[in-house]
Computed example of a mutant assay.
Amino acid sequence: MNTDLAPRLGWWQQTWRLTAAAAVGVPVWLSTGVLLRSQGVETGSWFLVGDPLVALGCLTALLWRRRLPLLVAVTVAVASTVSALAIGAALLALGSISARRRPVEIGVVVLAYVTASQFAARLYPVESPPGSLWLQLAFPALTAGIAVAVGAAVGARRVEVRSLRERAESAEREQTARAAQARVMERNRIAREMHDVLAHRISLVAMQAGVLDHRGDLRAEENQVLVRGIAEGSRQALEELRDVLGVLRADPGHPEPPQPSLDRIPDLVADARASGLDVTLTTAVTGSPSDVVGRTCYRVVQEGLTNAAKHAPGSHVHITLEGTAGDRLGVGVRNSPAATRTARPPASGFGLLGLNERVGLAGGSLSHHPEPDGGYVLTAQLPWPNPAHGKGT
């Protein structure tokens, strides 16, 4: 398994690892000197000078074990067999190469260490009991096995820590993406609500103001009615805008006020008539649809009236509602050609785009197109499942 997962070591970490490796070799070096003296063997200058120098060279080579792991490990493992003081450096090299968790590299270093250790007896001829050849093989193999086990455990821990870190970073990225998506959805929601609330009222106000501008033959009473309608429409637009902003700024746990549904369509038609729009409503709906379907139907009618007031002033608008539970709810808004020519208001197209998204989320379909005579038709088909069937499933 792979494994270049070793973190970069700082100066302090490097120092204490090398110090620990040197400390492990000191008892071995001292015990070897005591055994040699007890058997009357002169230690000589190599034991006092050469052995420590080799150990120092091995410890120094370990500084490059991250860059050249296999070469440093083999070199230290072989060199340590001629230095009792370098046994700690050899074990650290074995542990370091084992942390990489690459079996071939581990096997090469262990073989080099155990094989080279067999020649160390000629350097320090400590007397051994007869038949102790197996001990000369078992002791290096045992120490190498311990170093490999510790190094493999450290490597496994590094893999686990890296995995946990990557999972945490991935979760943080996903959280950031979800937050960004939530902000986009909230902006879209604000845009839809602002359009639904303001476009209808402002369109009616603009229609009334257009009548005042183009009709010079109106009586004083008619002018007053139109002015009052403009003032009332503006006031209602401000109140509805305040309600929307209040909902958007409310606490997450604060319940939202009830949204208009199918039963509010007659009020919507009455407001349009009071503003001077010629509207007729034909209803053939039996039952009460769900809140989502009813609210979507209300928005379809509202958008149709808004577009008629903006683009076809003075036209006749005919609204039809029909449907039964267990089938579909159909809504249609048709306006005749404009009766008067006024300055065409700017059209963004966002109203129908947002309405199409609303209808799609409700599981329905929306269509809109001009007619040959210059009128315009907006229709929607919304699913209306039977509540009794929904409870039985």
Rank of each mutant, 00 (worst) to 15 (best):
C58L: 07
Q224H: 12
R228V: 11
E322M: 10
E105A: 10
G375Q: 06
S288Y: 02
G210K: 02
P383R: 07
A325F: 03
E371K: 05
R189V: 00
N2D: 11
L281R: 03
D327A: 15
N356I: 01
L5H: 07
A206N: 10
Q13D: 12
M194K: 13
R328C: 09
A308N: 02
V26H: 03
Q39F: 00
M1S: 08
T19K: 04
G304K: 01
R228D: 11
A141H: 12
E186Y: 01
G375H: 09
T379D: 14
P257Y: 06
D4N: 11
A284P: 04
R183T: 00
L218G: 05
V377E: 14
P383G: 08
T306V: 01
A199M: 14
A147W: 00
E169S: 06
A61Q: 04
L111T: 04
G304L: 03
A77G: 09
P385M: 00
T324L: 07
H214D: 06
S128T: 09
I146Y: 15
V82G: 08
P260W: 06
R328M: 10
S261R: 14
V293K: 10
L56F: 15
T282L: 14
A270I: 01
R183K: 13
I265Q: 04
G294P: 04
A79Y: 11
S132H: 14
S83K: 08
S117V: 07
V126E: 04
A138Y: 09
A20G: 08
P266R: 02
